[in-house]
């Protein structure tokens, strides 16, 4: 009994001290160092417009459906790219629901980008990501959308392709991960490019 009580006392005191050290001092230290060294990243890599409004985060995808924008992947997060409902569809390989959704997406993708029936569609264009907030699409997916975007913006295809290449991220250090096009920053760049051209005129 005596050892039991002393063990219990030890357990309670250990809980208190470790909670202060590992759950108080440690995260605060990380917070201080991170805020000094990487203030922009520690706060969510936010994209802030000139008037101060936040337009999104460079890391978090947004939904786009308009002709003149590159379209991101289908999203299972809420109504699509809902920042509070991250997650995938969790539909398995033999799911009828998933099969139907992919079929519809393939049809829509071919139609909006003017592709022939036999054209194989990039997998990322018709499948939902794990997070529902995937900011990226594959290079091939971006290239297949280029003609549509260029037409809607009255730009030359080569011009749009040049912009795409500026927004390819990865592979990290030349080896890690896959090359990926950041849809949000790419679309923003295209928008600002248009504004600049208009201003120059």
């Amino acid at each position: 009994m005596k050892t039991f009580l002393s063990d219990l006392r030890g357990a309670v005191m250990a809980t208190i001290v470790i909670a202060v050290v590992c759950c108080g001092i440690y995260p605060l230290l990380v917070y201080c160092v991170a805020s000094c060294a990487f203030p922009e990243k520690a706060n969510g890599s936010l994209i802030v417009a000139k008037d101060g409004t936040v337009r999104g985060s460079r890391l978090i995808g947004q939904g786009f459906a308009g002709e003149k924008y590159f379209h991101p992947r289908p999203s299972a997060a809420g109504n699509g790219y809902d920042g509070l409902s991250s997650g995938g569809s969790n539909l398995g390989p033999t799911s009828q629901t998933l099969n139907d959704a992919i079929k519809d997406r393939i049809d829509a993708y071919r139609k909006e980008n003017g592709l022939k029936a036999g054209n194989a569609i990039p997998a990322d264009a018709v499948t939902a990501s794990a997070s529902g907030l995937d900011p990226h699409i594959s290079l091939r997916n971006a290239k297949l959308q280029t003609a549509r975007v260029a037409k809607a913006r009255r730009m030359a295809v080569e011009q749009v392709e040049k912009v795409i290449l500026q927004y390819v991220e990865g592979p990290d250090l030349g080896v890690f991960g896959e090359p990926a096009v950041n849809v949000l920053t790419l679309n923003l760049a295209l928008d600002s490019n248009v504004e600049r051209q208009v201003a120059e005129r």
Partner: peptide, 21 residues
């Protein structure tokens, strides 16, 4: 099943995966 619908075979199974990985 999805490849028969028209998904590119070389891309593998991307449902529930992130492009950067």
């Amino acid at each position: 099943i999805h490849q028969k619908l028209g998904v590119a075979i070389a891309d593998g199974n991307m449902e529930g995966k992130e492009v950067r990985f």
